[in-house]
Amino acid sequence: MTEPLFDPMKHPDWISPQTAEWYSRLSLETGEYKYPWMSHFDELRAEDIFGETIASCLNKDASVLDVGCGHGDFTTRFADIAKEVVGIDSMDGYIASAKRQAPDSLTFLVVDAHQPLPFTNASFDVIYTKKGPWLFHNGMNEGYRIIKSGGIALGLYHCGTDGGFRSLFPGLYSPLPDTHLKDMKDKYEQQLYESGLLDCELKMIEEVEYLARPEDVLIKKCFGQKESLKKVVWQKCLHQVEDIFARHAVSKGLRVVNYHVLLSGKAK
């Protein structure tokens, strides 16, 4: 049995992922929400499936809103197939990066999606989010206000990573509960049910990824964390991770499975 590794989450410098502090730190450090580890995928990534789903809803007259657009890399996919593409995010650093890198035809705004939105009624044919705020539930009425009747709402959310990966690195990664995927499915089905949208659909996606190097195991765990914590993790874990990686990796790298859920519905 593998000896437990150091648990970064017990270190005082650990920042809980997907919190305001975590997003703010990542924005200030890089100006991007971009995975820094090296890997490749067997088939289409979940975000590529999501992108194709969004594109199928668009035409040259469509207006589309990306909620929580980050540095705008994903948003640019729709620049040539929609009339208007707008990305919003609450982090100034992300929006500054998006404006520097994206085509002038796209609009990027610093906006808190939990506050009144700076758009007129029935502005958008498609509103989507990739891991960001879902605008269609009680307490967030702005989504219903700014989407057109018959407009499409879409969301892609990450539901965890495993596929046997976590059991290889006890301590460094915690096991997911046996009911984890069912719980995630139930959670997002409830979210769709409460949205009041029509023609709701939920699709679970399993994405096979191969981490290229032992250090990518650590980079994945410490994404968005402070350099002080990363230094401790590398000192305490790298040698053991290298040994585990060497014993379990295949020619493509170390296999992991990422779970996602894709939500869709139509506005009344």
Rank of each mutant, 00 (worst) to 15 (best):
R247Q: 09
I147W: 03
G164Y: 00
H114M: 12
T129A: 10
A249V: 03
G163L: 06
F245C: 03
D243K: 12
Q225E: 06
Q191Y: 10
D104F: 06
C159F: 00
D243T: 15
I219R: 14
M140H: 15
L211K: 07
F119W: 02
R145N: 04
L192A: 13
I205S: 02
V111C: 01
S228K: 09
Q191H: 08
Y128I: 00
Q235F: 05
P116H: 01
K130C: 04
D216R: 02
G224S: 01
K187D: 03
K220I: 02
I205D: 02
Y188L: 04
F108V: 05
M204P: 15
V208R: 06
L154N: 12
R213Q: 12
I152Q: 00
D112F: 02
G151F: 04
I244H: 01
F165M: 06
F136C: 13
G139Q: 09
L218I: 11
A212G: 02
E206G: 12
Q115F: 10
M184A: 13
Q191W: 12
T120Y: 09
D178R: 11
L176R: 08
K230Y: 15
P170Y: 12
Q240G: 13
N121Q: 08
D104W: 08
P214G: 02
G150Y: 11
D186C: 09
L154F: 10
D112A: 12
Q190S: 14
D183N: 11
A122L: 10
G164W: 01
L156I: 11
V250K: 03
C222H: 10
E194G: 13
E189V: 14
Q240K: 14
F169N: 05
L238P: 13
T107A: 07
H158R: 12
Y144W: 01
K236I: 06
F124R: 00
K203I: 03
K185Q: 12
F108M: 11
H239T: 11
I127C: 13
Q225R: 00
C159H: 03
V208E: 08
P133D: 15
L202K: 05
Y157G: 08
Y144H: 09
F119P: 00
Y144E: 09
Y144I: 04
P177S: 13
I244K: 00
F108N: 06
Y173R: 06
K148T: 00
D183T: 14
F136G: 04
S174A: 15
D162K: 05
A249R: 03
F124K: 01
G151K: 03
